[in-house]
Write a protein that binds this DNA or RNA. Structure first.
Lengths: 215, 215
DNA sequence: TGCATAAAGTATCGAGGCGAAACCAATTTG
DNA sequence: CAAATTGGTTTCGCCTCGATACTTTATGCA
Protein backbone atom coordinates (compact mmCIF):
# COMPACT_ATOMS: atom_id res chain seq x y z
CA UNK A 1 0.00 0.00 0.00
CA UNK A 2 1.51 3.21 -1.14
CA UNK A 3 -0.95 5.58 0.37
CA UNK A 4 0.97 6.78 3.31
CA UNK A 5 -1.23 8.51 5.67
CA UNK A 6 0.60 11.70 6.32
CA UNK A 7 -1.05 12.83 9.47
CA UNK A 8 -3.25 9.94 10.42
CA UNK A 9 -3.81 9.34 14.06
CA UNK A 10 -2.71 5.78 13.93
CA UNK A 11 -2.26 5.50 17.62
CA UNK A 12 -5.69 7.01 18.12
CA UNK A 13 -4.40 8.80 21.16
CA UNK A 14 -4.05 12.25 19.68
CA UNK A 15 -7.31 13.99 19.71
CA UNK A 16 -6.57 17.22 18.05
CA UNK A 17 -5.84 17.72 14.45
CA UNK A 18 -2.21 18.55 13.76
CA UNK A 19 -3.36 20.67 10.84
CA UNK A 20 -5.70 22.98 12.56
CA UNK A 21 -4.97 22.39 16.19
CA UNK A 22 -8.68 21.94 16.53
CA UNK A 23 -10.28 19.03 18.26
CA UNK A 24 -11.97 17.10 15.50
CA UNK A 25 -15.58 16.07 15.67
CA UNK A 26 -15.32 12.31 15.75
CA UNK A 27 -19.00 11.83 15.22
CA UNK A 28 -19.08 13.94 12.10
CA UNK A 29 -16.06 12.19 10.71
CA UNK A 30 -17.51 8.78 11.33
CA UNK A 31 -20.67 9.80 9.51
CA UNK A 32 -18.62 11.09 6.63
CA UNK A 33 -16.46 7.99 6.50
CA UNK A 34 -19.40 5.62 6.64
CA UNK A 35 -20.99 7.48 3.83
CA UNK A 36 -17.96 7.42 1.63
CA UNK A 37 -17.00 3.87 2.49
CA UNK A 38 -20.48 2.80 1.60
CA UNK A 39 -20.13 4.39 -1.77
CA UNK A 40 -16.76 2.79 -2.37
CA UNK A 41 -17.88 -0.59 -1.18
CA UNK A 42 -20.77 -0.32 -3.55
CA UNK A 43 -18.51 0.46 -6.44
CA UNK A 44 -16.22 -2.33 -5.42
CA UNK A 45 -18.96 -4.82 -6.04
CA UNK A 46 -19.52 -4.27 -9.73
CA UNK A 47 -17.37 -7.28 -10.47
CA UNK A 48 -17.71 -10.67 -12.03
CA UNK A 49 -20.96 -9.73 -13.70
CA UNK A 50 -22.81 -9.21 -10.44
CA UNK A 51 -24.12 -6.00 -8.97
CA UNK A 52 -24.00 -4.98 -5.33
CA UNK A 53 -27.48 -6.24 -4.58
CA UNK A 54 -26.66 -9.60 -6.06
CA UNK A 55 -23.45 -9.87 -4.11
CA UNK A 56 -25.24 -9.03 -0.93
CA UNK A 57 -27.94 -11.56 -1.57
CA UNK A 58 -25.36 -14.18 -2.36
CA UNK A 59 -23.48 -13.42 0.81
CA UNK A 60 -26.62 -13.65 2.84
CA UNK A 61 -27.62 -16.91 1.25
CA UNK A 62 -24.19 -18.26 1.92
CA UNK A 63 -24.41 -17.81 5.63
CA UNK A 64 -28.08 -17.83 6.49
CA UNK A 65 -29.39 -21.01 7.98
CA UNK A 66 -31.61 -23.33 6.08
CA UNK A 67 -34.90 -21.74 7.02
CA UNK A 68 -33.69 -18.27 6.26
CA UNK A 69 -32.58 -18.97 2.75
CA UNK A 70 -35.75 -17.87 1.03
CA UNK A 71 -36.57 -14.88 -1.15
CA UNK A 72 -38.47 -13.38 1.74
CA UNK A 73 -35.50 -13.81 4.02
CA UNK A 74 -33.29 -12.00 1.59
CA UNK A 75 -35.85 -9.24 1.23
CA UNK A 76 -36.11 -8.76 4.97
CA UNK A 77 -32.40 -8.78 5.42
CA UNK A 78 -31.64 -6.40 2.61
CA UNK A 79 -34.58 -4.18 3.32
CA UNK A 80 -35.84 -4.44 -0.23
CA UNK A 81 -39.23 -5.37 -1.57
CA UNK A 82 -40.09 -8.90 -2.46
CA UNK A 83 -40.51 -7.98 -6.06
CA UNK A 84 -37.05 -6.55 -6.28
CA UNK A 85 -35.53 -9.53 -4.56
CA UNK A 86 -37.37 -11.87 -6.83
CA UNK A 87 -35.52 -10.33 -9.71
CA UNK A 88 -32.22 -10.47 -7.92
CA UNK A 89 -32.74 -14.10 -7.08
CA UNK A 90 -33.77 -14.87 -10.61
CA UNK A 91 -30.62 -13.22 -11.86
CA UNK A 92 -28.47 -15.28 -9.53
CA UNK A 93 -30.26 -18.40 -10.61
CA UNK A 94 -29.84 -17.55 -14.26
CA UNK A 95 -26.13 -17.25 -13.64
CA UNK A 96 -26.14 -20.68 -12.10
CA UNK A 97 -25.01 -19.47 -8.69
CA UNK A 98 -28.00 -20.64 -6.73
CA UNK A 99 -30.75 -23.23 -7.01
CA UNK A 100 -34.35 -22.87 -6.02
CA UNK A 101 -36.20 -25.87 -4.66
CA UNK A 102 -39.79 -25.70 -3.52
CA UNK A 103 -40.29 -26.46 0.13
CA UNK A 104 -42.29 -29.54 0.90
CA UNK A 105 -43.31 -28.10 4.22
CA UNK A 106 -45.02 -25.05 2.80
CA UNK A 107 -45.59 -25.13 -0.90
CA UNK A 108 -45.51 -21.36 -1.16
CA UNK A 109 -41.92 -20.94 -0.10
CA UNK A 110 -38.88 -21.95 -2.01
CA UNK A 111 -35.60 -22.82 -0.42
CA UNK A 112 -32.45 -21.50 -1.92
CA UNK A 113 -29.06 -23.11 -1.96
CA UNK A 114 -25.78 -22.04 -3.40
CA UNK A 115 -24.52 -24.17 -6.21
CA UNK A 116 -20.91 -25.22 -6.43
CA UNK A 117 -20.54 -22.36 -8.83
CA UNK A 118 -22.03 -20.05 -6.23
CA UNK A 119 -19.58 -21.25 -3.61
CA UNK A 120 -16.77 -20.55 -6.00
CA UNK A 121 -18.13 -17.08 -6.61
CA UNK A 122 -18.38 -16.35 -2.91
CA UNK A 123 -14.75 -17.25 -2.58
CA UNK A 124 -13.99 -14.28 -4.80
CA UNK A 125 -16.17 -11.88 -2.89
CA UNK A 126 -14.84 -8.39 -3.56
CA UNK A 127 -15.57 -7.14 -0.07
CA UNK A 128 -13.09 -9.67 1.12
CA UNK A 129 -10.50 -7.02 0.43
CA UNK A 130 -11.98 -5.06 3.31
CA UNK A 131 -11.44 -8.08 5.46
CA UNK A 132 -7.80 -8.30 4.56
CA UNK A 133 -7.27 -4.62 5.18
CA UNK A 134 -8.94 -4.79 8.56
CA UNK A 135 -7.11 -7.99 9.26
CA UNK A 136 -3.92 -6.00 9.05
CA UNK A 137 -4.96 -3.78 11.91
CA UNK A 138 -4.33 -4.49 15.52
CA UNK A 139 -6.96 -6.62 17.11
CA UNK A 140 -8.02 -4.07 19.64
CA UNK A 141 -8.88 -1.48 17.02
CA UNK A 142 -10.72 -4.08 15.01
CA UNK A 143 -12.70 -5.17 18.04
CA UNK A 144 -13.67 -1.63 18.88
CA UNK A 145 -14.71 -1.02 15.33
CA UNK A 146 -16.91 -4.07 15.39
CA UNK A 147 -18.44 -2.87 18.59
CA UNK A 148 -19.01 0.68 17.47
CA UNK A 149 -20.27 -0.19 14.03
CA UNK A 150 -22.53 -2.85 15.45
CA UNK A 151 -24.15 -0.46 17.83
CA UNK A 152 -24.42 2.11 15.10
CA UNK A 153 -26.22 -0.36 12.92
CA UNK A 154 -28.63 -1.40 15.63
CA UNK A 155 -29.56 2.23 16.21
CA UNK A 156 -29.93 2.88 12.52
CA UNK A 157 -32.13 -0.12 12.06
CA UNK A 158 -34.38 1.14 14.75
CA UNK A 159 -34.34 4.58 13.17
CA UNK A 160 -35.30 3.20 9.81
CA UNK A 161 -37.97 1.04 11.32
CA UNK A 162 -36.56 -2.04 9.69
CA UNK A 163 -36.61 -5.39 11.38
CA UNK A 164 -33.66 -5.48 13.72
CA UNK A 165 -32.16 -8.47 12.04
CA UNK A 166 -34.61 -9.77 9.58
CA UNK A 167 -35.40 -13.38 10.08
CA UNK A 168 -32.28 -13.79 12.11
CA UNK A 169 -33.75 -12.52 15.31
CA UNK A 170 -35.92 -15.59 15.22
CA UNK A 171 -32.89 -17.71 14.65
CA UNK A 172 -31.42 -16.27 17.76
CA UNK A 173 -34.37 -17.38 19.80
CA UNK A 174 -33.97 -20.84 18.53
CA UNK A 175 -30.51 -21.03 19.90
CA UNK A 176 -31.68 -19.70 23.21
CA UNK A 177 -35.21 -21.05 23.53
CA UNK A 178 -35.38 -20.22 27.17
CA UNK A 179 -35.50 -16.59 26.08
CA UNK A 180 -39.03 -17.30 25.07
CA UNK A 181 -40.65 -17.38 21.68
CA UNK A 182 -43.58 -15.10 21.04
CA UNK A 183 -44.90 -16.90 18.02
CA UNK A 184 -46.63 -20.20 18.06
CA UNK A 185 -44.35 -23.15 18.10
CA UNK A 186 -45.28 -23.95 14.52
CA UNK A 187 -43.30 -21.00 13.20
CA UNK A 188 -41.71 -22.44 10.14
CA UNK A 189 -38.66 -20.25 10.19
CA UNK A 190 -35.38 -20.76 11.83
CA UNK A 191 -35.74 -24.26 13.06
CA UNK A 192 -38.32 -23.34 15.61
CA UNK A 193 -40.46 -26.08 14.25
CA UNK A 194 -38.89 -28.17 16.90
CA UNK A 195 -36.79 -29.99 14.41
CA UNK A 196 -33.28 -29.72 15.77
CA UNK A 197 -30.72 -28.01 13.64
CA UNK A 198 -28.40 -30.59 12.29
CA UNK A 199 -24.95 -30.43 10.83
CA UNK A 200 -23.27 -27.08 10.56
CA UNK A 201 -26.45 -25.13 11.18
CA UNK A 202 -25.49 -23.83 14.61
CA UNK A 203 -22.25 -22.48 13.23
CA UNK A 204 -23.60 -20.90 10.12
CA UNK A 205 -26.63 -19.62 11.86
CA UNK A 206 -27.35 -16.14 10.65
CA UNK A 207 -27.87 -14.34 13.89
CA UNK A 208 -24.39 -14.69 15.14
CA UNK A 209 -22.87 -13.72 11.95
CA UNK A 210 -25.16 -10.97 10.92
CA UNK A 211 -25.48 -9.20 14.20
CA UNK A 212 -25.92 -9.66 17.85
CA UNK A 213 -29.07 -7.72 18.65
CA UNK A 214 -32.30 -9.44 19.51
CA UNK A 215 -35.46 -7.38 19.46
CA UNK B 1 -33.86 3.40 21.51
CA UNK B 2 -35.70 0.20 22.12
CA UNK B 3 -33.37 -2.13 20.37
CA UNK B 4 -31.63 -3.58 23.31
CA UNK B 5 -28.56 -5.27 22.23
CA UNK B 6 -28.85 -8.58 23.96
CA UNK B 7 -25.35 -9.82 23.76
CA UNK B 8 -23.43 -6.94 22.30
CA UNK B 9 -19.87 -6.53 23.35
CA UNK B 10 -20.36 -3.04 24.56
CA UNK B 11 -17.24 -3.00 26.60
CA UNK B 12 -15.29 -4.29 23.64
CA UNK B 13 -13.20 -6.33 25.98
CA UNK B 14 -14.82 -9.68 25.42
CA UNK B 15 -13.40 -11.24 22.38
CA UNK B 16 -15.31 -14.40 22.10
CA UNK B 17 -18.90 -14.73 21.16
CA UNK B 18 -21.17 -15.67 24.04
CA UNK B 19 -23.35 -17.58 21.62
CA UNK B 20 -20.84 -19.91 20.13
CA UNK B 21 -17.90 -19.51 22.41
CA UNK B 22 -15.95 -18.98 19.27
CA UNK B 23 -13.58 -16.12 18.76
CA UNK B 24 -15.22 -14.01 16.12
CA UNK B 25 -13.45 -12.82 13.03
CA UNK B 26 -13.33 -9.10 13.55
CA UNK B 27 -12.21 -8.43 10.04
CA UNK B 28 -15.08 -10.33 8.50
CA UNK B 29 -17.55 -8.62 10.75
CA UNK B 30 -16.23 -5.20 9.91
CA UNK B 31 -16.58 -5.98 6.23
CA UNK B 32 -20.10 -7.16 6.80
CA UNK B 33 -21.00 -4.14 8.87
CA UNK B 34 -19.53 -1.67 6.44
CA UNK B 35 -21.46 -3.29 3.69
CA UNK B 36 -24.75 -3.19 5.50
CA UNK B 37 -24.22 0.24 6.94
CA UNK B 38 -23.51 1.51 3.49
CA UNK B 39 -26.80 0.13 2.30
CA UNK B 40 -28.68 1.62 5.20
CA UNK B 41 -27.00 4.97 4.87
CA UNK B 42 -27.95 4.95 1.26
CA UNK B 43 -31.54 4.26 2.06
CA UNK B 44 -31.47 6.88 4.73
CA UNK B 45 -30.81 9.51 2.15
CA UNK B 46 -33.94 9.21 0.08
CA UNK B 47 -35.40 12.16 1.91
CA UNK B 48 -36.59 15.66 1.17
CA UNK B 49 -36.76 14.96 -2.52
CA UNK B 50 -33.07 14.32 -2.87
CA UNK B 51 -31.30 11.08 -3.65
CA UNK B 52 -28.06 9.85 -2.11
CA UNK B 53 -25.89 11.21 -4.88
CA UNK B 54 -27.46 14.62 -4.56
CA UNK B 55 -27.02 14.63 -0.81
CA UNK B 56 -23.42 13.67 -1.17
CA UNK B 57 -22.79 16.34 -3.74
CA UNK B 58 -24.49 18.89 -1.55
CA UNK B 59 -22.41 17.87 1.42
CA UNK B 60 -19.26 18.09 -0.59
CA UNK B 61 -20.18 21.49 -1.95
CA UNK B 62 -20.94 22.66 1.53
CA UNK B 63 -17.52 21.99 2.84
CA UNK B 64 -15.20 22.10 -0.12
CA UNK B 65 -13.18 25.23 -0.50
CA UNK B 66 -13.91 27.74 -3.17
CA UNK B 67 -11.74 26.23 -5.86
CA UNK B 68 -13.06 22.77 -5.30
CA UNK B 69 -16.70 23.65 -5.72
CA UNK B 70 -16.97 22.80 -9.38
CA UNK B 71 -18.73 19.98 -11.21
CA UNK B 72 -15.36 18.40 -11.85
CA UNK B 73 -14.50 18.57 -8.18
CA UNK B 74 -17.68 16.82 -7.27
CA UNK B 75 -17.05 14.19 -9.93
CA UNK B 76 -13.56 13.50 -8.64
CA UNK B 77 -14.70 13.33 -5.08
CA UNK B 78 -17.65 11.10 -5.70
CA UNK B 79 -15.86 8.95 -8.23
CA UNK B 80 -18.54 9.50 -10.83
CA UNK B 81 -18.33 10.67 -14.40
CA UNK B 82 -18.68 14.27 -15.35
CA UNK B 83 -21.82 13.56 -17.26
CA UNK B 84 -23.49 12.01 -14.28
CA UNK B 85 -22.45 14.83 -12.03
CA UNK B 86 -23.67 17.37 -14.49
CA UNK B 87 -27.12 15.95 -14.06
CA UNK B 88 -26.84 15.83 -10.32
CA UNK B 89 -25.71 19.42 -10.23
CA UNK B 90 -28.50 20.45 -12.57
CA UNK B 91 -30.99 18.75 -10.32
CA UNK B 92 -29.66 20.56 -7.29
CA UNK B 93 -29.79 23.81 -9.16
CA UNK B 94 -33.33 23.18 -10.33
CA UNK B 95 -34.31 22.69 -6.72
CA UNK B 96 -32.76 25.99 -5.89
CA UNK B 97 -30.18 24.54 -3.55
CA UNK B 98 -27.10 25.70 -5.38
CA UNK B 99 -26.14 28.43 -7.81
CA UNK B 100 -23.75 28.14 -10.72
CA UNK B 101 -21.63 31.13 -11.64
CA UNK B 102 -19.11 31.01 -14.46
CA UNK B 103 -15.56 31.53 -13.37
CA UNK B 104 -13.85 34.63 -14.70
CA UNK B 105 -10.50 32.96 -14.32
CA UNK B 106 -11.26 30.09 -16.65
CA UNK B 107 -14.37 30.47 -18.70
CA UNK B 108 -14.83 26.72 -18.94
CA UNK B 109 -15.38 26.12 -15.29
CA UNK B 110 -18.31 27.16 -13.23
CA UNK B 111 -18.16 27.80 -9.54
CA UNK B 112 -20.89 26.45 -7.37
CA UNK B 113 -22.25 27.92 -4.20
CA UNK B 114 -24.97 26.82 -1.89
CA UNK B 115 -27.96 29.07 -1.77
CA UNK B 116 -29.62 29.98 1.48
CA UNK B 117 -32.07 27.24 0.66
CA UNK B 118 -29.17 24.84 0.23
CA UNK B 119 -27.77 25.77 3.62
CA UNK B 120 -31.12 25.13 5.14
CA UNK B 121 -31.25 21.75 3.44
CA UNK B 122 -27.81 20.79 4.70
CA UNK B 123 -28.98 21.54 8.18
CA UNK B 124 -31.42 18.67 7.78
CA UNK B 125 -28.87 16.26 6.42
CA UNK B 126 -30.16 12.76 7.15
CA UNK B 127 -26.74 11.34 7.87
CA UNK B 128 -26.61 13.69 10.77
CA UNK B 129 -28.44 10.98 12.64
CA UNK B 130 -25.28 8.90 12.38
CA UNK B 131 -23.45 11.75 13.97
CA UNK B 132 -25.79 11.88 16.90
CA UNK B 133 -25.60 8.15 17.41
CA UNK B 134 -21.83 8.16 17.34
CA UNK B 135 -21.85 11.24 19.48
CA UNK B 136 -23.48 9.17 22.16
CA UNK B 137 -20.57 6.78 22.29
CA UNK B 138 -17.55 7.24 24.45
CA UNK B 139 -14.90 9.36 22.85
CA UNK B 140 -12.29 6.67 22.82
CA UNK B 141 -14.38 4.31 20.77
CA UNK B 142 -15.30 7.10 18.40
CA UNK B 143 -11.68 8.07 17.97
CA UNK B 144 -10.65 4.52 17.23
CA UNK B 145 -13.44 4.20 14.73
CA UNK B 146 -12.32 7.32 12.96
CA UNK B 147 -8.82 5.99 12.86
CA UNK B 148 -9.74 2.54 11.64
CA UNK B 149 -12.27 3.69 9.11
CA UNK B 150 -9.92 6.35 7.83
CA UNK B 151 -7.18 3.86 7.23
CA UNK B 152 -9.65 1.51 5.66
CA UNK B 153 -10.75 4.17 3.25
CA UNK B 154 -7.25 5.16 2.31
CA UNK B 155 -6.46 1.55 1.48
CA UNK B 156 -9.65 1.13 -0.46
CA UNK B 157 -9.04 4.25 -2.46
CA UNK B 158 -5.67 2.91 -3.41
CA UNK B 159 -7.25 -0.41 -4.28
CA UNK B 160 -9.85 1.22 -6.48
CA UNK B 161 -7.26 3.41 -8.12
CA UNK B 162 -9.24 6.50 -7.34
CA UNK B 163 -7.63 9.78 -6.49
CA UNK B 164 -6.73 9.64 -2.82
CA UNK B 165 -8.76 12.68 -2.02
CA UNK B 166 -9.91 14.22 -5.19
CA UNK B 167 -9.01 17.83 -5.43
CA UNK B 168 -8.53 17.91 -1.72
CA UNK B 169 -5.06 16.52 -1.77
CA UNK B 170 -4.10 19.73 -3.46
CA UNK B 171 -5.87 21.67 -0.79
CA UNK B 172 -3.80 19.89 1.75
CA UNK B 173 -0.63 20.97 0.05
CA UNK B 174 -1.79 24.51 0.11
CA UNK B 175 -2.13 24.41 3.81
CA UNK B 176 1.32 22.93 4.13
CA UNK B 177 3.22 24.49 1.23
CA UNK B 178 6.51 23.36 2.61
CA UNK B 179 5.43 19.84 1.74
CA UNK B 180 6.08 20.79 -1.84
CA UNK B 181 3.77 21.20 -4.77
CA UNK B 182 4.34 19.04 -7.80
CA UNK B 183 2.26 21.10 -10.15
CA UNK B 184 3.20 24.46 -11.53
CA UNK B 185 2.35 27.36 -9.36
CA UNK B 186 -0.39 28.40 -11.76
CA UNK B 187 -2.62 25.50 -10.77
CA UNK B 188 -6.01 27.11 -10.55
CA UNK B 189 -7.34 24.81 -7.91
CA UNK B 190 -7.22 25.02 -4.20
CA UNK B 191 -5.78 28.43 -3.77
CA UNK B 192 -2.43 27.44 -5.09
CA UNK B 193 -2.58 30.36 -7.41
CA UNK B 194 -0.75 32.19 -4.73
CA UNK B 195 -3.84 34.08 -3.79
CA UNK B 196 -4.15 33.55 -0.06
CA UNK B 197 -7.26 31.89 1.21
CA UNK B 198 -9.33 34.46 2.95
CA UNK B 199 -12.12 34.23 5.43
CA UNK B 200 -13.21 30.81 6.59
CA UNK B 201 -11.39 28.97 3.86
CA UNK B 202 -8.76 27.41 6.10
CA UNK B 203 -11.46 26.05 8.35
CA UNK B 204 -13.76 24.73 5.71
CA UNK B 205 -10.96 23.45 3.65
CA UNK B 206 -11.83 20.07 2.32
CA UNK B 207 -8.77 18.08 3.13
CA UNK B 208 -9.11 18.20 6.84
CA UNK B 209 -12.67 17.38 6.78
CA UNK B 210 -12.69 14.78 4.10
CA UNK B 211 -9.69 12.81 5.13
CA UNK B 212 -6.19 13.01 6.33
CA UNK B 213 -4.22 11.11 3.74
CA UNK B 214 -1.95 12.89 1.32
CA UNK B 215 -0.68 10.91 -1.62
C1' DT C 1 1.58 33.15 -33.94
C1' DG C 2 -1.21 29.25 -35.23
C1' DC C 3 -2.63 24.67 -35.06
C1' DA C 4 -3.25 20.49 -32.30
C1' DT C 5 -4.46 18.63 -28.18
C1' DA C 6 -6.42 18.57 -23.73
C1' DA C 7 -9.76 19.77 -20.41
C1' DA C 8 -14.45 21.48 -18.36
C1' DG C 9 -19.19 21.00 -18.96
C1' DT C 10 -23.40 19.72 -21.20
C1' DA C 11 -26.82 16.92 -23.86
C1' DT C 12 -28.50 12.62 -25.34
C1' DC C 13 -29.05 7.84 -25.32
C1' DG C 14 -29.66 3.37 -23.35
C1' DA C 15 -29.05 -0.21 -19.85
C1' DG C 16 -30.36 -1.64 -15.58
C1' DG C 17 -31.96 -1.41 -10.64
C1' DC C 18 -35.75 -1.01 -7.93
C1' DG C 19 -40.32 0.09 -5.92
C1' DA C 20 -45.43 -0.19 -6.71
C1' DA C 21 -49.20 -2.64 -7.83
C1' DA C 22 -51.57 -6.45 -9.58
C1' DC C 23 -51.70 -11.14 -9.36
C1' DC C 24 -51.41 -16.30 -8.14
C1' DA C 25 -51.05 -20.02 -5.04
C1' DA C 26 -51.03 -21.88 -0.53
C1' DT C 27 -51.95 -21.43 4.26
C1' DT C 28 -54.17 -19.89 8.34
C1' DT C 29 -58.04 -18.14 10.90
C1' DG C 30 -62.72 -17.18 12.14
C1' DC D 1 -65.83 -23.17 4.24
C1' DA D 2 -65.15 -18.33 3.29
C1' DA D 3 -62.03 -14.55 4.37
C1' DA D 4 -57.89 -12.85 5.24
C1' DT D 5 -52.69 -13.51 5.23
C1' DT D 6 -48.52 -14.72 3.47
C1' DG D 7 -44.69 -16.15 0.07
C1' DG D 8 -43.43 -15.28 -4.59
C1' DT D 9 -43.65 -13.70 -9.26
C1' DT D 10 -44.71 -10.54 -13.06
C1' DT D 11 -45.33 -6.20 -15.19
C1' DC D 12 -44.80 -1.46 -15.47
C1' DG D 13 -42.50 2.79 -15.14
C1' DC D 14 -39.39 5.98 -12.87
C1' DC D 15 -34.93 7.26 -12.20
C1' DT D 16 -29.90 6.78 -11.78
C1' DC D 17 -25.83 6.47 -14.03
C1' DG D 18 -22.21 5.47 -17.51
C1' DA D 19 -20.93 6.06 -22.43
C1' DT D 20 -20.62 8.88 -26.18
C1' DA D 21 -20.62 12.87 -28.81
C1' DC D 22 -20.23 17.71 -28.90
C1' DT D 23 -19.07 22.76 -27.59
C1' DT D 24 -16.17 25.97 -25.69
C1' DT D 25 -11.99 27.48 -23.67
C1' DA D 26 -6.92 26.65 -22.40
C1' DT D 27 -2.60 25.07 -23.12
C1' DG D 28 1.50 23.31 -25.56
C1' DC D 29 4.38 22.88 -29.28
C1' DA D 30 6.30 24.10 -33.63
Amino acid sequence: MTVTDGQSMSDAAKDDDPMTGVKPDHAARVAELIDRLGRMTRELQYVDGLNPAQWEALRYLNRANRYSRTPGGVADFLGATKGTISQTVSALEAKGLIARTPSDRDKRVCLIDLTAEGERMIARDPVRCIETIVGGMDDRTAALMVDGLGRLMASLQFELGSKPFGVCAACCRHLAPEAGCKKSEAVPKCGMTGEPLQGDAPQRICVNYLGDAAE
